[in-house]
Design a protein around this nucleic acid. Structure first.
Lengths: 137, 137
DNA sequence: TATTGTTATACTCTATAACTATA
DNA sequence: TATAGTTATAGAGTATAACAATA
């Protein structure tokens, strides 16, 4: 068992723990983990259906139905791109933005007991090391 | 934006990145992220249906159908507990164990480019810090 | 009565295939 | 022809409710 293996183990376990928190908080607002993520992505930008699908690793048809359901709930909107009539751009409604913000706060609060025991130096180290892990594609 | 907020952001992004890798590798073996996790849990122990459901945060009925499908694929087996006729214990078949092992290797290989750039000290630090985060329930 | 598990039902999530519209 | 998106279909994942068996 190498140190890299230990890190992979810890990363996978952390992933399931954080995913559990995200799934619970999403569920409390009737949102799946995927829908939660869509809202997270669209918080600060608009995006095309195909680009969203590629980013999330989903088929465009899956993306399409996800958007339809979120739109039906008033969380986001679709609009034609005037430069290319084939393209549909997706963006948040005020209600969607508000929900995304509320859930972000809830996630911070839910994870606070886990980050709380770390001191300032450990928090900085962990953030830096995770950024290093995320840097590689 | 506090240091704790930065860590939460990095944890959430890491979660989605690792989940993407796990989803892809599971998918290559026709397994969902949940099924992948069930196999991971049962690798080194047997478990009751209700305990599995509680651990995964799923309803027992959901757990039941997941088990039925995995069993139909020959990955795991169910057996009555002789001490308590209500209890069903679930455990892996040799085929399930072999698949779990193969996927674990694939996950390590897939994440190697991300852990690779870290030196020995950084790996040890990251493993230690993630353990601290995981320690709090 | 309480606990353990399964089944029926009704959603959402997801990919594949077939389609429309635009380029 | 190629690209962007939608829709129809089918199967997996999920929870709720109702149920059977056991304690």
């Amino acid at each position: 068992m190498t140190a890299a293996d230990d890190v992979v183990d810890a990363l996978v376990r952390t992933t399931f723990e954080v995913a559990r928190v995200l799934t619970r908080i999403g569920g409390e607002h009737d949102l799946s983990l995927t829908q939660l993520r869509v809202l997270g992505i669209l918080r600060d930008r608009r995006a095309r259906v195909t680009d969203l699908a590629a980013y999330l690793g989903l088929d465009k048809s899956t993306m399409s139905t996800l958007i339809v359901r979120a739109q039906r709930r008033g969380l986001l909107t679709r609009g034609k791109n005037p430069d290319d009539g084939r393209v549909v751009e997706v963006y948040m409604t005020p209600a969607g933005l508000e929900l995304a913000k509320r859930m972000e706060d809830e996630v911070r609060r839910a994870l606070a007991p886990r980050t709380g025991p770390l001191d300032q130096e450990q928090l900085d180290q962990l953030a830096k090391l995770l950024e290093l892990v995320l840097a590689r594609p």
